[in-house]
Design a protein around this nucleic acid. Sequence first.
DNA 1: GCGCCGGTTTGCGCCAGCGCAAATCCCAAG
DNA 2: CTTGGGATTTGCGCTGGCGCAAACCGGCGC
Lengths: 232, 232
Amino acid sequence: MPLDRSIIASLPLFEGLSPAELDGVLKDARAARFPKESTIFEQEAEVRSFFVLLAGHVRVVRATPDGRQVIARYISEGEIFGIAAALGRLTYPATAIAAVDCVVLVWPNAVWPDLAARFPVLSAGTFKTVGSRLQDAQARVVELATEHVEQRVANALLRLANQTGRKTEAGIEIDFPIWRQDIAEMTGTTLHTVSRLLSAWEERGIVVSGRQRVTVTDAHRLVLLAQHRSKD
Amino acid sequence: MPLDRSIIASLPLFEGLSPAELDGVLKDARAARFPKESTIFEQEAEVRSFFVLLAGHVRVVRATPDGRQVIARYISEGEIFGIAAALGRLTYPATAIAAVDCVVLVWPNAVWPDLAARFPVLSAGTFKTVGSRLQDAQARVVELATEHVEQRVANALLRLANQTGRKTEAGIEIDFPIWRQDIAEMTGTTLHTVSRLLSAWEERGIVVSGRQRVTVTDAHRLVLLAQHRSKD
DNA sequence: GCGCCGGTTTGCGCCAGCGCAAATCCCAAG
DNA sequence: CTTGGGATTTGCGCTGGCGCAAACCGGCGC
């Protein structure tokens, strides 16, 4: 396993583990590569593993019975995901797809109880991750329930820019291929509406976008759009 | 503390604890009564305690910066809530209000790490609870993103009926006072639309409703409404 | 260089559901 | 019994945003 141990050791999740302990944690793990657009695990499939993302970006998608789908979140480097087992589930609630070529650590889910018991740091860190996902999900519920499409799309772009933005001379570019349909599935709208919004924003100099690419050039005005109250 | 220990012992959360262990868990708890419509904890307030609901129903509400609010969930008897501390938060992300007169157990949040370490059953149970809340929240995201108001309201009523329904001769009655505005805040719509829907459903014999009261008389047809695809 | 294919843009018509406003109803206090 | 106020119902007009369809565009393979 030619993995850089020091990079792994520096992940927040493993903070506070001694090198020996880290060895113990990693003993049961294997590294795996997932090429762009390949499936890491599938919704409804039996839970066999949990994962830590070392490099790349992962898209987590929930499909509805009638074939529509919603992007639950993007996983960034260093995050733990696929932890359905720890939450007492037998099947994955969503599908995970590599948005770009990815490197992940994989543990068989059976080792979780042991790891969690031996390394409270891990358990607490996972609690924290789950907690922030819960916050996140509930914030999105509020957003979907109270805000207009324009605000939601603005918010989604801002979140992406914050989470995975790469600074370029033009502005903050979202660091993986994303197309209109994706943004629509993050915000509960249609690719048509997203396209219209991006076009309008591009005209006003707030974003620059093209095929599978979005760059936020004026984050400040985008924030204003995101906060815009219908009653002001 | 004139609390019926056996009732507490029978809660799923405490399953698997010996009577002695249960004593240890309860040693740090105190019981408290919250009258109808009183606030148990407030959004943004510093986290001081976590709670288990012994009797009653609690409404958990998130307020938006512009004064609108969204009902995150109703807590039923036996559930743990206000566990922001376990999730690494310093303030509560929402406000909890007693929907009816309530009895709760209260722990100072400082005892959580100790309890979690000493009683893995508690920790795992809380993980499970948080996991199911996360599922729930993400399911609501999908619902809000893909379904129409009619389906969302139908789903909300079905969830309430399942979670807290009381069988009467007329059908399944929701067991606490709930008004149109509440249902609107659970589903991201307005009380007007909810009222129109309930009126229409009442005409068709699917529900009976009145002031602060809803009874589902034909759950089967309500399920059909909830599942109705726009393209059928 | 050309054509194809999938992503993107844009126009157009429509309607679900919101906002406003008024009427009505029902409980509870007096 | 009467009255007041909050909950609920209902009508009406308007519009945000969807669905459909067509045009457009840019990269890639041949």
